[in-house]
Nucleic acid binder design. Structure first.
Lengths: 125, 125
DNA sequence: CGGAATCCCCACGGATACTG
DNA sequence: CAGTATCCGTGGGGATTCCG
């Protein structure tokens, strides 16, 4: 019966759009050229200052880094700590607990990136 | 001794840039507004035709969908199957085995998206 | 040092119309 | 149906300069 087929297809569409929505929600916050990279460096390095952060992320400009950090702070991924007692002022950025919930996303992404690179290499020869 | 601190920091920088590179390799292929979404729908629905694909991805235009599909095909994520025997011609898109290696990435991303949405809701009140 | 302000460009992608 | 062609706006982001 064709009905079975239709029912199945429609069920697929539902779980499909649910998945789509979930991924969209995730991408809305962490997509973009730099966001995930910044989060990774912050998690790996603990506290870190603006200029060193910029040095560790090849290619990012100061303006863009500044904007991204504001965005990440607004969304609770980054904490900004100012040590005003010193001159010149020292500013440190620290990853929050919430940003650590992204751990599994980062891991699976970097795992996939590694094997993907290997596959590309093999194809090349 | 300060040396210990320095050695540790430098080790961090190494694993850090390795992670960064891996994630960059991954993002290079699957980042963008639509790529992952298309892959998700394709995996969920099995074979699917152009117009239905467009309908299932709200907001995407025909031109962009067409371009993205070409790109995904080049990278081995999508198979394009033409049934020329019929008129009008039927074209189906099918997700490849290779695109299925992204499964864990998609799952962790959609899982995170769901819990993130919940957190946002709570913050709102 | 840690940014903010300004200028400027171009490519991503939307809208519309057309084709095999 | 399954796209392609063309036109066009806009905003992401680079380069540079300036400020506290």
């Amino acid at each position: 019966m064709e009905n079975q087929d239709q029912i199945c297809k429609n069920a697929c569409k539902v779980t499909c759009s649910e998945n789509l929505a979930a991924v969209e929600d995730a991408l809305y916050v962490i997509s973009g050229k730099w966001k995930l990279k910044i989060i990774i460096v912050l998690q790996e390095m603990g506290n870190i200052r603006f200029n060193e952060l910029q040095r560790l992320i090849p290619g990012i400009s100061a303006r863009v880094l500044s904007n991204e950090l504001k965005d990440l702070e607004l969304n609770g991924f980054v904490k900004r700590v100012v040590h005003a007692e010193q001159t010149p002022v020292v500013v440190e950025y620290i990853s929050t607990d919430y940003s650590r919930t992204l751990k599994s996303v980062i891991i699976s992404l970097s795992e996939w990136g590694k094997t993907h690179k290997r596959n590309i290499r093999e194809d090349a020869f």
